[in-house]
Design a protein around this nucleic acid. Structure first.
Lengths: 362, 362
DNA sequence: TCACTGATTGCATACGCATGCAAAATGTGA
DNA sequence: TCACATTTTGCATGCGTATGCAATCAGTGA
């Protein structure tokens, strides 16, 4: 049998027991001192705090969460941080989670890396919740978490089965508004650069776009796939722009690709934007506002999306057995100068020029 | 005294004991099955794996790390993800840490938010190591971690006291090379936009730049502070460019600021780059290569820096009592077209056009 | 002063797993 | 076949903390 010795001077961080010994109290008293709302007398608390300070004691969150069954860790899965949308999301999520007393276990997934097996590990940490902000993860994973009793929320994506909560932008409506905007700008032959083809965002944006165009008897857009990467988008742009009947306007599946497409259009094809070709993006990320691009883009309100996500996930952590929510954060078409302007429908909103369909009663 | 009941059917995740009961073995056997290299017979292992699968069992990493005293979590502190440098770093770090079997606890610090108190919490998780990639954190924190026995490494910054390991780029040399490059391009009156003034990167870049210029009897550069933000840099640019004797060339403390400065120069002052003004950045982040900016920039090799960081931190985790290392990843001046080209010294290297001082024996 | 109430405190235990040790099972050679 | 070496197994314990319970303490009013 092993006997408990006085802790050797060096190495190991002080424990509650060490502090208790030094302060001449029980370990429970120490624990209560560091548990808000627990019952400790003022004098004891002072003594203990002093002893803790002397030993550099910090409660061991690992041990704590073993008992409380709360790790206060939220898993966040992000992918492809090159796309500025995600750093913006990550930064906001991080700040708000920190403010709410949670910590982030970050997990980045890239397209090639099979993400699921690694993610299983993170589940081993008994995280309190999981935010999936990656388009490339299997839906199976979300199910698995649900089965493991871990609250999950999909950020900027959905699954076919609607039983996992999600927060998205107005992908389908955005696509439709963009179609209408380009049409109002006088374009007939459109182009579309898809993102990752089996991602819900890309599919929804595409179907909104195509839907409006086909309902209004516009020619079917020319289509290429950019996979949400710059390289992919550049290739897609080359494909579309080198055609003799190249499109007059291109709806780029997101701003990240729009930038690459603008680069190719300008510097490889010598096209002026918007005189020779109109470009519209999606997300309204920071760089879209740079004068170098001045991108017209349907916004995804990162702030709102993150707020909704936080609210939902924290609620789910408290009360796990809830029906899934499917929240949609409203966006709008932020009009800059990468696409020809329509005559009607431009208004100012929150200091930004936006466009709203005019032929509807609103 | 509380008795151990059969676990209620719902809710709680299965434990090793549950699996053991189902498989008809001891809890230790289950533990060994999930511990690589432990002694379990093939038949037992099979039975246990089957039972585990049936119950959806995953070892509880929290409980495990309580015993092993290894959390397999590395804390990463990043700040200001707007600057593309950090997402690139984060993505690489994340991938490599994942491959090495570690998990990332992410912590983002913004300038205004006092980071230290929150970071203390993350120390409570008994993380195995900490990577500080934020310029705005107190040096005290690094010391504190060292005291707590947590290996720390500073990424892209150093402290005055050299007792904490660090990985940086060639800040001082880069500044000097940029000075020499601009001089070779025929410029005399330079400008400098500083980053965060008390950050080591900004200070080192500045002193390298100023040092070379003063040694070679060039006029003292005009100086403004951009705080490493776009807004700050835009304001700094306005300050410098609206002077009657505005500088012929500006060394922008990093690419992130250089982009903002280019925007202001072009769209607010109608200047052509590099005909009317030369701009040089630092970091060589992705957007620097975009044709819209085509930025000449001294590179910080993210890949190498991350490799060195990984190597160091993992080593430190294994053997904590080591003298601190101060690693410097070599960069080079990647020449594009945002600054006037010198006559001599341009060479190709790894498919990039670079510039090296010519008047030295190399 | 005493009985009684409420606030503090310590004891003992459990959280889920890893691991040293000894017992049991299996394998090996003669 | 048996004695011995080797592997496999279970037992018991501890990691550092939270918490129910009972015991103790301080505080109140008469």
């Amino acid at each position: 049998m092993m006997t408990r010795f006085k802790r050797p001077p060096g190495q190991r961080p002080a424990t509650a027991t060490d502090v208790a010994k030094l302060a001449g109290v029980s370990q429970s008293a120490v624990s209560r001192t560091f548990t808000p709302g627990a019952s400790v007398s003022r004098v004891a608390r002072e003594k203990i705090k002093a002893a803790a300070a002397e030993l550099g004691y910090r409660p061991n969150a690992i041990a704590r969460s073993l008992i409380t069954r709360r790790s206060r860790i939220i898993g966040v899965v992000a992918a492809y941080l090159q796309n500025h949308f995600y750093p913006e999301v990550l930064e906001r999520l991080s700040r708000q989670l920190q403010e709410a007393g949670y910590h982030i276990m970050l997990f980045t997934a890239d397209a090639q890396n099979a993400a699921d097996p690694l993610l299983e590990e993170i589940i081993g940490y008994r995280i309190d919740g999981l935010i999936l902000a990656s388009t490339t993860l299997s839906s199976a994973l979300a199910q698995q978490c649900k089965a493991a009793g871990i609250p999950v929320i999909l950020f900027n994506r959905t699954t076919d089965t609607a039983d996992v909560s999600s927060v998205t932008g107005e992908n389908a409506r955005g696509g439709a508004v963009i179609a209408e905007f380009l049409a109002a700008g006088g374009h007939r032959q459109m182009g579309f650069v898809a993102g990752i083809e089996n991602s819900s965002t890309s599919r929804d944006r595409e179907s909104g776009f195509y839907g409006w165009l086909s309902r209004h008897l516009y020619p079917t857009p020319m289509r290429a796939v950019g996979n949400y990467t710059m390289e992919g988008a550049a290739a897609a742009a080359r494909e579309l722009l080198s055609r003799k009947d190249r499109p007059e306007a291109i709806f780029c599946g997101n701003d990240h690709m729009a930038i690459a497409i603008a680069e190719v259009a300008r510097h490889e094809f010598g096209l002026r934007i918007p005189e020779d070709i109109s470009l519209v993006g999606f997300d309204d990320v920071g760089p879209a506002a740079w004068k170098a691009f001045d991108l017209t883009s349907f916004s995804q309100p990162v702030g709102t999306m993150v707020d909704l996500t936080m609210e939902t996930i924290l609620d789910l952590v408290e009360k796990p057995d809830q029906p899934p929510r499917h929240l949609v954060a409203p966006g709008e078409l932020v009009v800059r100068n990468s696409a020809r302007l329509p005559q009607l429908g431009l208004t100012m909103h929150d200091g930004r020029r936006v466009w709203r369909p005019v032929n509807r009663i609103s």
